[in-house]
Simulated scan of single mutants.
Amino acid sequence: MTKPYFTGPFAPMCEIFVAQKRASGLVYDQQAMLLRMFDNFCKGHEIQNYTITKEIALDWCQKRLNEKDITRRSRVGEMQRFSVFLSKQGYPSYFLPVLPKQGETHTPYIFTKDELKRIFERLDTLIPTNASPNRHLTYPLLFRMLYGCGLRISEALSLTKGDVDAENGVLHILHGKNDRERFVPMSESLTTLCSQYLLAVHQSTPAEMPLFYTKSHTNYSKSCISKEFKGFLWDVGIPYRGTSLGPRVHDLRHTFVCHNIQRWAEEGVAIYSRLPVLSKYLGHTSVSATQWYLRLSAEVYPHIRQICETELGGMYTNILNFEMQEVDSDE
């Protein structure tokens, strides 16, 4: 007789959870192993009605001796996903949105629609220079792509001509953060702009040529783009407030996410059902990283808070109880 994979107090719910994940097409082997570790850990706790209490969650979150941050985040992230599942099954569980990252903290700057309009209008007035003969074509597309697709600047600058399927409007991110590969659909207007760009600057270039290339046919550096961006912000009256307050190029990605959540909330779309799709689109390793944006969106657009509270209940309240941390970066 085969020994059950899960043998702890959450075993029946773990089996259902993993079965659902695999039925959706996921392999879910490594995640199942992490979930089994959590289930075994809970053998030392008193479990009632398949509920993950605050005490259990915080005990599981404690960093272990010589444990790497990425390992800790992985096992805590799996507990978070399981907690969401249990709550949906009628077993209210404590919900920790994400572990803080070490290092730099940055307060995201969410651009208004008017600020974006001013930025893009400024970009559309650029003229070529001897040092940068394609800047009037490169920058309007690059910054629209960062906002319109929510790309990290490193991902955009790593794109090659061959990574762009202009016919179908899809970008191929071959090496995203943590070397994750994904395909990113573009809007119709962005696809059109991309096609025009390819015709203008890539008619005779090889497939491996950087999509955005300098006069010497090399990749732009992130520092170069950051410096240019600060200049464009100054031109349209948006002050740069320093390293911790920005705005930074990466804030275009934050703005993309918050604007989408704002639109879903105002249109009555079930936000939580869209988060897994948004998470994949952004290249996040887990939905928990994307959930952080619910709080950020509610702080920027207070009228969204009531919508989120109504839809997510206690899970959303728990999100608000934690300090906002930068859970998504371009590093």
Rank of each mutant, 00 (worst) to 15 (best):
T2C: 09
T2K: 00
F6E: 01
F6R: 00
T7I: 11
P9A: 03
P9C: 03
F10S: 03
I16S: 12
Q20H: 08
Q20S: 14
A23R: 13
G25K: 05
G25F: 12
V27K: 05
D29N: 04
Q31A: 13
L34I: 10
F38L: 06
F41V: 09
Y50W: 11
I52S: 03
T53Y: 09
K54H: 14
A57S: 15
L58I: 12
L58G: 03
C61S: 15
Q62W: 05
K63D: 00
R64T: 09
N66Q: 14
K68D: 09
D69K: 12
I70K: 08
T71I: 07
T71C: 08
R75Y: 10
R75H: 04
R81F: 01
F82W: 03
Y91S: 07
Y94T: 06
Y94A: 04
Y94C: 08
P97M: 01
V98N: 11
L99Q: 06
G103I: 05
H106R: 05
P108T: 00
Y109N: 00
Y109A: 00
Y109K: 02
R122W: 11
D124F: 07
D124V: 01
T125L: 14
I127R: 15
P128K: 08
N130Y: 12
N130F: 10
P133L: 06
R135H: 08
T138D: 13
L142H: 04
F143Y: 12
R144Q: 12
R152V: 15
I153L: 13
S158H: 14
L159N: 09
D163E: 06
A166L: 00
N168T: 07
G169Q: 10
G169R: 11
L171H: 11
I173A: 00
R182P: 01
P185Q: 09
S187V: 00
E188G: 01
S189L: 14
L190R: 03
T191N: 12
L193R: 14
C194R: 05
Q196P: 01
Y197M: 04
L198G: 02
L199T: 13
A200G: 03
V201M: 10
H202M: 05
H202E: 04
Q203H: 12
T205S: 13
P206C: 04
E208H: 10
F212T: 02
N219M: 07
K222L: 10
I225R: 07
K230W: 06
G231V: 10
F232L: 03
D235Q: 15
V236I: 07
G237T: 01
P239R: 02
L245T: 14
G246F: 10
R248V: 01
T255H: 11
F256L: 11
V257S: 02
V257W: 05
C258R: 02
H259S: 08
Q262E: 15
R263K: 10
R263Q: 13
E266T: 03
I271N: 09
L275G: 12
S279F: 00
Y281S: 09
G283A: 05
H284G: 10
H284N: 13
S288R: 04
A289Y: 03
T290Q: 03
Q291L: 11
W292H: 12
Y293R: 09
S297M: 12
V300C: 13
P302T: 07
H303F: 14
R305F: 02
Q306Y: 14
I307A: 11
E309C: 15
Y316F: 15
T317G: 14
T317Y: 12
N321E: 14
F322K: 11
F322S: 12
Q325T: 15
Q325F: 13
S329P: 08
